[in-house]
Design a protein around this nucleic acid. Structure first.
Length: 886
RNA sequence: GGGCGCUUAGCUCAGUUGGCUAGAGCGCUGGCCUUACAAGCCAGAUGUCGGGGGUUCGAGUCCCUCAGCGCCCACCA
C-alpha cells in the first residue's frame, strides 16, 4: 500500500475522486480533487480569498494557540502584549507593530517554545472618558446619586447631560466593549496567534485588584505617599498631570513690557503672562546682575494692583532673558514653583481648577485698589483675563510700547488642547528616582540589564531617567479608572486625616472606597465626624498599565502561572511610550520584585503615510487597516509589516503589500505544482541523489541557518528577506530547471520530486510566521495538524545529500539558463523556442559544476546541443546561444 | 541647547565583523499565453553610496568634520 503521507497525486489525474469539503458548500475552496490513497488534496484553483475566516475559525476551534500551562518556565516564551487603547480608532500602526510581535511569537512557538501570548484591552483612563463624553454628550458629576434608569441622549445635544459617577462608568464600560469588539475583529482578521481565552481588560476585576495590591505594597514600603504641592494641572480635564504626560506645543505669545514701581524709579519686567500680575509675589534677578543688585531685599509695588512685593536674587534667573528681572507668580511655570519654594515666598493663587480666575481675591490683595482691579478679572478665562489686565495696565500707563509677538513652547497635557496651569492640590506620588539618586541609579542599571531591540533605544530610557524632575504623580481627579484603595479618618470636626490613610485589606481587592467601607468601620460612618471618607481619585492610566506583566501572569492570584511566566521574555512596544509604559513598568517591577519585568524590549517604529509624513487625524492622512486587509489579504499586509525593521519608522507601502500578496499567491501555485507531481519516496530527504537537487537543498540549509539566526536575534526583517529571496529563486530558477526531470520517471525524477517536497515543507514553515494563512492552507493539503505547531525546519532534516553538495552547480546552471533566456528575449521569441546549440566557455571548475546540471539546463532551455569549452580558470564564463530557426 | 537615528538607483530600502564588477523590490522599457501561476513569466536600462578630509594594500562600511532630514529630551520672565 503506497498511500502514505507522501503519495502526491496530480490534480489532473484521471483516477482522482472529487470530494466535497467537510464543512459544506459555502467553503470557498470547494472543488478539490482527493486521491483516495494520498493525503494530498490540492484544489484546482487555489486562492487566497476567505483564508482569514476559514483559518481564524479553525484555529479557534482547534485551540491551536492555546497556552499549555503545564510547561516549565524554561520551555515557555512569555509576551507582555501591549493592551491597545480601545477608545482610539483603529490605525494601520496597530497592525504594523502587532504583526511584529506575532511574527516573533509564531517563530518561537515553532522553535518549540510554549508561547504565553495574551491580549489585553486598555479601556480605563482619560481617552475613554473623553470618548464617552463626546459620543453621548454627557459629563460626570460625582455628586449625583446613581440613577438605575439613566439613559444617555440618543445624540449629543447642545448641553451636556450630567451623569452620576456610577452611571458614567457604566457608559464607559458599554462603549469600550463595543470598541473592544472592533479590535477583536481586526486582530482575528490579521491572524494574531493570541490565546484569546486569556484576554484581560485594564478595568476588569483582576486588573483593578492587581493595581491596587501593587499600590498597597508601595504604600506599605513608603514608596507611595501623599503630598500637597503645586502640580501641573489640565483645566479641561480638571486633573493633575505627570511629567511623563507632558508635551511641548509652540504657541503664539507676546512680551509685555510693564513697569513696577521701585524706590528709585520704574523697574521694567517683560512677561508673556500679564494676566498673572495679580498673582505676583516677588521679582527675581540673578545675584550677579549689577543692574538689580541695588534692589535686592527691597520692595517694589506692582502696577494696577499696588501690591508691595520683594525683589530677590536667585541663580536661576537669567540676565539675558527679557529685561533680566522676572516676576514670580504663583504659579506661572515650573521656575516659579522653584523660586517660590526656595525663596519661601507667599502664595497668591488666582487660577482655579477650571482654568478661570477665582471668585475671591487671594490673601494679599486686600486693598481697595487691588480689589477693584481684581473684580474685573474674576470668573474670566485666562485669555480674557489677559486682555483685561492689559487694558488695566494701559489705563495705568504701566504698559510700555506694543507687546512684542513671540512664538514660545508651552507645556500641554498630551491629550489636552489648553496650556497647563499650576495649581496646588493633594496628590499621590510614587517614587521613581526623580528625587532619589540611589533609586535613579538602580533604575539606570535596570536599563542596562534589559536587552533593547534596537539597542540604541536604551538611550531614550537613560535620558528620560536622568531628566526626571520629581516623583511620579499617580492620582487623577477622574472617574473611569482604578480607585486608590484607601480611606481617611474624619476628625470630630469632620476634617480628613491625610497623614495616616487606612489601607484596604489585600483580601478585599478590588475595592471601591466610595461604595465600600474600610476595615473596622460601618457604611453609616461615611462622611460623619469620627467616621471616614474614601479617597476620591483614580490612578493614572499608566499606574495600571505599568502592572500588565503582573496582571497577565497572575501575580498573587495564580502563583503557579506566575512562576511559569514571570519575568516575561518580551515586551513589544513603540518608541513613543518608553518614558511612560516601559519606564513605569520597570519601576513597579523593580520595587516589588527587585527584578526586570522582562528580558527584552522590542521597540517598533511608527507607520508614516505613503509620502513618509506622520499620520494624524487633522491631516486626514490616517490609513485605516481593515480595508487593507480585505483588499490585499492579511498575509500581504503582514508581509509589508514584517519589512519594517525594529525601531524604524516605516511608510504605509501599498506596493509592498502587493508584493506580499504576490508572494502568497506564489506559495499557492508553487505548492500546487510540487504536490501535483506524483508519488515521492517514503523518506524523501534520503532519496535526493542528483547534484542540482542537493545544491538547492544546500542553499536552503544556508537560508534556514541565517534566517533562524536572524529570527533568534529579533531581526525578523532580515529573516524574511533571506527566506523570501530564496523562495523566489526556488520558484524562478530551480523549479524551471528541474521541471522536465520531475515530470519524468526514474531515479532523477525521484530525486527531483523528493527534493521539491522536502524544500516545500521547509519553506512553508519558514514563511509561516509571516504568511500565516497561506502556509496553513497549503500545509493542510498534505500534512496533519497546523503548520504553526510544526517544528521549525533545520538543515539536518534536509538529508545527507545537501551536506556535501556543491552549491555552485545550481549557481552555474542558473547563470547559463539566464543567458539562454536572454537570447530568446533579445530575439523577441517565446521561451518555448528551441535552441540549436549552446557553447559555454569557462574554467574547469565551472564546467565540472555545469556537467552535473547539463541535462536539466538542456531541458529547461530546450537546447539540442550543449558544448562545454574549457579555458583558463580566471576567465569569465561566456555563453554563446544559437537559436533554432522558428 | 543636549542626545539618538537617518542620508545608497526615479521611489522604498538591503548591504552582518572593511574584501571580487554596490544589490533587491516597486516603478519604467521591451518581449513572451511557457503541461504551478497572465492576479503570471522572461529580459533590459538606471548610482558622484549627502559634501570634504583622514586611516588602510583596499572604505558604502572605520575615524574626524560640515550640511540636510527625522525623532527624543530640555529651556521657554
Amino acid at each position: 500500500h503506497r498511500g502514505d503521507a507522501n503519495c502526491l497525486v496530480s490534480a489532473s489525474g484521471s483516477s482522482s475522486v472529487r470530494n466535497r469539503p467537510k464543512n459544506g458548500s459555502d467553503d470557498p475552496h470547494a472543488g478539490r480533487y482527493r486521491c483516495p490513497m494520498a493525503q494530498a488534496n490540492v484544489p484546482d484553483k487555489p486562492s487566497l480569498e476567505g483564508l482569514e475566516t476559514k483559518w481564524g475559525e479553525r484555529w479557534e476551534a482547534d485551540g491551536t494557540y492555546r497556552f499549555d500551562r503545564t510547561k516549565t518556565r524554561a520551555e515557555i516564551y512569555s509576551i507582555d502584549t501591549p493592551p491597545p487603547t480601545v477608545s482610539g480608532s483603529l490605525h494601520v500602526g496597530h497592525v504594523f507593530s502587532y504583526t511584529h510581535t506575532d511574527v516573533i511569537a509564531r517563530f518561537q512557538r515553532m522553535r518549540g517554545k510554549e508561547v504565553f501570548y495574551p491580549m489585553g484591552w486598555d479601556d480605563n483612563g482619560v481617552p475613554t472618558e473623553r470618548r464617552v463624553e463626546n459620543y453621548h454628550g454627557v459629563r460626570c458629576d460625582p455628586s449625583l446619586p446613581y440613577d438605575p434608569g439613566f439613559a444617555p441622549p440618543e445624540k449629543p445635544g447642545k448641553d451636556f447631560v450630567l451623569a452620576s459617577r456610577r452611571n458614567f462608568v457604566e457608559l464607559c464600560q458599554r462603549l469600550t466593549s463595543v470598541d473592544e469588539r472592533a479590535f477583536d475583529e481586526l486582530w482575528h482578521h490579521l491572524g494574531l496567534s493570541v490565546d484569546w481565552s486569556m484576554t484581560y481588560t485594564t478595568i476588569d476585576d483582576n486588573a483593578r485588584a492587581t493595581a491596587q495590591r501593587m499600590f498597597l505594597r508601595n504604600l506599605a514600603r513608603g514608596e507611595a505617599y501623599l503630598s500637597e504641592a503645586p502640580t501641573l494641572w489640565d483645566v479641561t480635564f480638571r486633573m493633575a498631570v505627570s511629567q511623563a504626560e507632558l508635551e511641548d506645543h509652540d504657541q503664539a505669545g507676546a512680551y509685555h513690557r510693564i513697569s513696577f514701581h521701585g524706590p528709585d524709579g520704574p523697574v521694567f519686567v517683560e512677561t508673556t503672562r500679564p494676566e498673572l500680575l495679580a498673582a505676583c509675589v516677588a521679582l527675581v534677578a540673578h545675584p550677579d546682575d549689577e543692574r538689580y543688585q541695588p534692589l535686592f531685599d527691597r520692595t517694589v509695588t506692582t502696577p494696577v494692583f499696588g501690591i508691595e512685593v520683594p525683589v530677590r536674587a536667585h541663580p536661576l534667573a537669567e540676565p539675558d532673558k527679557g529685561s533680566g528681572i522676572a516676576m514670580i507668580c504663583t504659579f506661572g511655570d515650573l521656575n516659579d514653583v522653584t523660586w517660590w519654594r526656595e525663596l519661601q515666598l507667599d502664595t497668591r493663587a488666582i487660577v482655579g481648577r477650571d482654568g478661570r480666575i477665582v471668585a475671591e481675591a487671594p490673601a494679599g490683595l486686600e486693598s481697595p485698589q487691588a480689589r477693584a482691579a481684581f473684580e474685573r478679572l474674576t470668573g474670566t478665562t485666562i485669555h480674557t483675563a489677559r486682555e483685561r489686565t492689559v487694558e488695566l495696565l494701559r489705563e495705568s500707563g504701566d504698559l510700555h510700547g506694543v507687546p512684542r509677538p513671540v512664538t514660545h513652547s508651552v507645556k500641554f497635557y498630551e491629550k489636552g488642547n489648553k496650556p497647563l496651569e499650576i495649581v496646588t492640590s493633594r496628590q499621590w506620588y510614587l517614587r521613581n528616582g526623580g528625587r532619589d539618586i540611589d533609586l535613579r541609579d538602580e533604575l539606570l542599571s535596570r536599563g542596562k540589564e534589559l536587552e533593547w531591540v534596537p539597542d540604541y533605544m536604551r538611550v531614550r530610557y537613560e535620558n528620560w531617567v536622568q531628566g526626571l524632575t520629581g516623583d511620579w504623580l499617580v492620582s487623577r481627579q477622574r472617574f473611569f479608572g482604578v480607585p486608590f484603595p484607601v480611606w481617611y479618618r474624619l476628625g470630630d470636626d469632620g476634617s480628613p486625616d491625610y497623614d495616616e490613610p487606612i489601607p484596604a485589606d489585600e483580601s478585599s481587592l478590588p475595592v471601591d472606597p466610595q461604595s465600600e467601607c474600610p476595615p473596622g468601620f460601618a457604611e453609616t460612618q461615611r462622611s460623619q465626624p469620627g467616621g471616614f471618607v474614601g479617597d476620591p481619585d483614580v490612578m493614572d492610566t499608566w499606574a495600571t498599565s505599568s502592572v500588565t506583566p503582573q496582571i497577565a501572569t497572575g501575580w498573587e492570584r495564580d502563583t503557579d502561572l506566575f512562576e511559569r511566566t514571570f519575568p516575561m521574555d518580551l515586551r513589544p512596544q513603540a518608541h513613543d511610550i518608553i518614558r511612560t509604559w516601559l519606564f513605569s513598568t520597570v519601576v513597579r517591577s523593580h520595587l516589588e520584585h527587585d527584578a526586570l519585568p522582562w528580558m527584552t524590549a522590542a521597540i517598533s517604529g511608527f507607520v508614516l503615510d505613503p509620502d513618509r509624513k506622520k499620520m494624524s487625524k487633522s491631516k486626514g492622512n490616517v490609513v485605516t487597516p481593515l480595508p487593507l486587509l480585505t483588499e490585499y489579504g492579511s498575509d500581504a499586509v503582514r508581509y509589508w509589516a514584517a519589512g519594517g525593521a525594529p525601531g524604524t519608522d516605516t511608510a504605509a507601502d501599498f506596493g509592498q503589500m502587493r508584493v506580499g500578496r504576490r508572494t502568497a499567491i506564489k506559495v499557492l501555485n508553487a505548492s500546487k505544482f510540487v504536490l501535483g507531481l506524483g508519488p515521492v519516496p517514503a523518506d524523501p530527504a534520503a532519496a535526493v541523489a542528483t547534484a542540482v537537487d542537493a545544491a538547492m537543498l544546500s542553499w536552503l540549509a544556508e537560508t534556514i541557518e541565517s534566517g533562524t539566526a536572524a529570527f533568534e536575534d529579533h531581526q525578523y526583517t532580515r529573516a524574511v528577506d533571506r527566506i523570501a529571496t530564496f523562495f523566489w529563486s526556488f520558484c524562478d530558477d530551480y523549479l524551471e530547471l528541474v521541471k522536465a526531470r520531475a515530470y519524468g520517471e526514474g531515479p532523477g525524477a525521484d530525486s527531483a520530486r523528493a527534493a521539491l517536497a522536502v524544500a516545500l515543507s521547509a519553506q512553508l514553515r519558514l514563511l509561516a510566521p509571516v504568511l500565516a494563512f497561506v502556509t496553513e492552507e497549503v500545509w493542510s493539503w498534505w500534512k496533519e495538524g497546523s503548520v504553526h505547531r510544526a517544528p521549525w525546519p533545520t538543515a539536518a532534516e534536509l538529508g545527507p545529500a545537501q551536506d556535501s553538495a556543491d552549491k555552485h552547480v545550481l549557481t552555474v546552471a542558473t547563470q547559463v539558463l539566464g543567458e539562454i533566456r536572454k537570447a530568446k528575449s533579445d530575439a523577441k521569441k517565446s521561451m518555448r523556442l528551441d535552441v540549436a546549440s549552446v557553447v559555454v566557455t569557462a574554467g574547469a571548475n565551472d564546467l565540472a559544476a555545469l556537467r552535473h546540471a547539463s541535462e536539466d539546463v538542456k531541458a529547461a532551455g530546450r537546447v539540442d546541443e550543449l558544448a562545454l569549452v574549457e579555458t583558463n580558470e580566471d576567465a569569465r564564463m561566456t555563453v554563446e546561444v544559437t537559436l533554432a530557426e522558428s
